[in-house]
């Protein structure tokens, strides 16, 4: 079992930290994991992406050209990565700010309106966790329990009081993915 995932959007949307929480969840489940950011002098407003690979065997390249799953948070990233999803793969995207929707017919496309959900919940910082919830619901890779344990490990203790709000966002994402 190997999941090759790209998460892409604007800097500030929580792209890298979403990948990081997923990577920590994989660590909790004793999987092999690689988290490879597209890093640079990129700041809020610039594009950011991270490749996360989870596997039950040794991971070779941390850099990929095609992905099993793409989680897309803006138009630029959709334009860049839609064609790089493997046939039969999964594309999850947030429709806010998307003018041209994905058109592939050989992959599963899941629209998750995380922006609306996060506003409804009054929890703007839970945005990326809603998408992460949708991701773990739509492909069996790590369970919610592992993500919560990963959050606990990833967050410094002084931020542990935020875990319940994150859990609510994760669960909301799971619900949205089930619909």
């Amino acid at each position: 079992m190997t999941h090759e995932i790209i998460i892409a959007g604007f800097g500030g949307q929580g792209v890298l930290s979403m990948g990081k929480i997923l990577a920590y969840a994989a660590l909790m489940d004793n999987l092999e994991v690689t988290w490879m950011p597209s890093y640079g002098p990129e700041q809020r407003g610039g594009t950011a992406n991270v490749t996360v690979i989870l596997s039950d065997s040794r991971i070779s390249s941390p850099v990929l050209d095609t992905y099993d799953i793409a989680v897309i948070l803006n138009q630029q990233s959709l334009d860049k990565f839609e064609s790089h999803v493997k046939p039969g793969g999964l594309l999850i995207y947030d429709p806010s700010g998307i003018h041209h929707k994905p058109t592939r017919t050989d992959i599963t496309i899941l629209e998750i309106d995380a922006m609306t959900a996060t506003i409804e919940m009054g929890n703007p910082k839970g945005y990326n966790m809603i998408l992460l919830g949708a991701l773990i619901e739509s492909r069996k890779m790590v369970g919610l329990d592992a993500v919560l344990r990963g959050l606990k490990k990833a967050l410094p203790e002084r931020h542990h009081h935020l875990i319940p709000a994150n859990e609510a966002a994760l669960r909301r994402g799971q619900e949205l993915a089930r619909k």
Binding site: K20, M36, P37, P62
Partner: peptide, 9 residues
């Protein structure tokens, strides 16, 4: 820089 910046177990 790749192996410096990437996270792994």
């Amino acid at each position: 820089g790749v192996v410096g910046q990437m996270m792994e177990k």
